[in-house]
Design a binder for these strands. Structure first.
Length: 670
RNA sequence: GCCCAGGUAGCUCAGUCGGUAGAGCAACGCACUCGUAAUGCGUAGGUCAGGAGUUCGAUUCUCCUCUUGGGCUCCA
């Protein structure tokens, strides 16, 4: 047969000469498509453009501007990086180099335990560009496992991957098992190993597909070097990882780099310093913050709002101490399971004390302090409880990962029958509060039982998991199931929010607990006059106040909405003669409950306006002769146009409306 | 905890091939009194993260500790 028939995605069919490739198909459709093509989908499987097609194949072209296409570009770029590193560092061992979000990485072991320096990145990148200019082909071949072991005989990491695949041959691969699927991405699970060769010297094991030649690549940048454990195993060898980003066009690459710059500008640690909100004095020790007046006032309003909502939402407030006798954490099990996360013990003459890493044990004591009736349930205890956890040094990150923090912590005790409704109304409550802080895009994760480590009966796990799932369905909330990701004591829902620049943050959790009620022997007397064990729910909404503050800071890029802004209004008298008027207005606005300050006319007006803008103050009011005469303001709103001659009454009305709108969620929902 | 890179004035940074440091902004003072994003001049401000070592001499070189950043791992 000299002709083959190919079906295209739109259902149309075309005939090609035998031996034609997906690349030929793309070229026959159009030169623009041929240029954009990076790989193809042949009969449902991704394949190289250079693979000869068989008669009757269905072919779709993957272009570089699709997710799949970028994945191919990134993966191919990582191969080029491996080749460059092996040239520049003879004797280097290469392990794996997958495509990841926005880019790729590759892990190496350098000879004599050498490490990469920042300067090496420049060298590697230059060598990569040479390889790309050389227009090397990606040539695929397949071989047996034994041949592959021979080919990679001096590459121990490659051999380890091949051996693992051999061991797994015939085993159905669970896509949730990340460790195995990484290998599966490198090698076909059917017993053959595919490799891609660029030159006589450089060949890499890979399932593909790849771009036809290295000249198809080029819009990339190496970003950073890092250490990374082989197979993520803390006890295993530490490899040297290089991260890069790669895109289909120069514009896309530049846009990505620009996005990174923007994200850096709104880094909460930077903004916290610039706006004088809080700091991390090294004298305190790592992961501990002090809140300056401007940060504290924002935090106070966040907490006030949270308290109002909880008060209206049927919660009862409690307070508990920051430390407790070891007996408490023995009972709760924290000393058995969580000791590494706790600050070390304080030996006192009447026992051993620990800083509390969690509030739950103390809330359980409150539940247990007297006999409880089913009529009291659900019992919702709420506390802004400060806890201390000895997070490992390398994991600290500004406010996002901190050692002393305050949870907006709630523990809800209810009956099995109440669980369903309670979870549904909890979700209502959580989302409603998050919306008040400017978040509108939510997704959820449902973490289910890990049978290898869990307490509680099958029945209760099933029931609780269903209750969580049903709650999510009622909300139409998009969610993913994380199989086996639950803690040993119960299933949970995590809620992720998307921020102003599209990043997601995990904030709230709703977590069932079958363990603590048992350990603390919690009971209530039911309608049947018998004793029953309540179900316990942990629920944090902000997660931690500190972390939530950090997320808000990044979300708003420091420009807090008026109801939260540390200074809502700044009045600038044009000249000294207007200061009296300015002071009188400050007094009036403060009396009306607004946060207002004034900067006297010692500096030029333009300079004071600039300073106010850099402070991201919502309203800058300029007052001069006209305003004194007419009882008006010149209003310069954040992000808006200057308006002269606004009457004081009108401005106060607008300001009040702005504040009201920002905290609109204050109206009770229950 | 592990790998890499840092820590110099309140902030952002420069500098010292080993001879105890400098800029801009901020602060303070004086002059300017100004209508919407940087007025001018001046003053003050640093045990160069901390400790030990090498050296005639260490902010600079070495080691340790603390701490920060990027990752890994961890986050019952």
């Amino acid at each position: 047969m000299t002709e083959i028939l190919i079906t295209l995605p739109d259902g149309s069919q075309r005939s090609f000469a035998a031996g034609s490739t997906a690349g030929d198909v793309a070229a026959s459709i159009g030169s623009r498509l041929a240029k954009a093509a990076v790989a193809a989908v042949v009969n449902g499987d991704e394949a190289d453009l250079t693979t000869p097609l068989l008669n009757g194949a269905t072919v779709a072209i993957i272009t570089g501007d699709s997710d799949e296409g970028r994945h191919v570009l990134r993966h191919s770029t990582s191969h080029v990086m491996a080749q460059a590193v092996l040239q520049l560092f003879p004797g280097a061992k290469y392990s794996i180099g997958p495509a990841i979000t926005d880019g790729f990485y590759y892990d190496f072991e350098l000879p004599a335990s050498k490490t990469f320096s920042e300067d090496d990145l420049v060298l590697v990148e230059a060598r990569m560009r040479q390889i790309m200019s050389a227009n090397q082909p990606f040539i695929r071949s397949e071989m047996s496992i034994d041949d592959a072991l021979a080919l990679f005989a001096d590459q121990p990491y490659k051999c380890e991957i091949i051996e693992r695949v051999r061991a797994l041959a015939g085993v159905v691969i669970d896509p949730d098992d990340e460790e195995v699927s990484v290998d599966a991405g490198e090698v076909d699970p059917d017993g053959t190993v595919s490799v891609y060769r660029n030159t006589d010297e450089f060949v890499d094991m890979c399932r593909g597909p790849h771009v036809p030649t290295t000249s198809r690549l080029g819009h990339f940048k190496l970003m950073k070097v890092a250490g990374a454990y082989w197979r993520g195993n803390e006890k295993g060898p530490m490899l040297q990882r290089i991260y890069g980003t790669a895109w289909d066009t120069k514009a896309a690459l530049e846009e990505h780099l620009h996005r990174l710059e923007e994200a850096e500008k709104r880094d909460h640690r930077k903004l916290a310093t610039e706006l004088d909100l809080l700091s991390f004095p090294s004298e305190l020790g790592g992961g501990l913050a002090v809140w300056h007046p401007k940060g504290a006032i924002v935090r106070k309003h966040m907490e006030d709002y949270s308290r109002d909502r909880h008060e209206n939402g049927g919660y009862q407030f409690v307070f508990t101490p920051h430390l407790a006798n070891a007996n408490l954490f023995q009972t709760s099990g924290h000393l058995d399971f969580y000791k590494d996360g706790m600050y070390p013990p304080m030996e006192m003459d009447n026992g051993t004390y620990y800083m509390k890493p969690m509030n739950c044990p103390m809330h359980c004591l409150i539940f247990r302090s007297r006999q409880r009736s089913y009529r009291e349930l659900p019992l919702r205890l709420f506390e802004l409880g400060t806890v201390y956890r000895y997070e490992r040094a390398g994991t600290l990150h500004g406010l996002m990962r901190i050692r002393g923090f305050t949870q907006d912590d709630s523990h809800i005790y209810c009956t099995e029958e109440q669980l369903q409704d309670e979870i549904a109304s909890l979700l209502d409550f959580v989302l409603s509060v998050l919306r008040a802080f400017g978040f509108h895009d939510f997704t959820a994760n449902l973490s289910t039982r890990d049978p290898k480590k869990s307490v509680g009966s099958d029945e209760i796990w099933d029931k609780a998991t269903e209750a969580l799932r049903e709650g999510l369905h009622r909300h139409g909330l998009q969610y993913k199931v994380k199989h086996g990701d639950a803690a040993f004591y119960g299933p949970k829902i995590d809620i992720d929010v998307k921020d102003a620049i599209g990043r997601t943050w995990q904030l709230s959790t709703i977590q069932c607990d079958f363990n603590l009620p048992d350990r603390f022997n919690l009971e209530y007397v039911g309608a049947d006059n018998n004793r029953h064990q309540p179900i316990m729910l942990h629920r944090a909404l902000f997660g931690s106040v500190e972390r939530f503050f950090g997320v808000l800071l990044e979300h708003y890029a420091g420009a807090f909405p008026t109801w939260l802004a540390p200074v809502q209004v700044r009045i600038l008298p044009v000249a000294t003669a207007h200061e009296e008027y300015a002071q009188a207005q400050v007094a009036a606005l403060r009396a009306a409950g607004f946060r207002v300050d004034v900067i006297e006319a010692n500096d030029q007006l333009g300079k004071r306006i600039r300073a106010a803008k850099l402070d991201k103050i919502p309203y800058v009011l300029v007052v001069g002769d006209d305003d004194v005469a007419d009882n008006t303001f010149g209003v310069n709103p954040r992000g808006g146009e200057v308006e002269r001659g606004v009457s004081v009454a009108t401005f106060i009305e607008r300001l009040a409306a702005d504040v009201e709108q920002g905290s609109a969620g204050l109206t009770p929902v229950v």
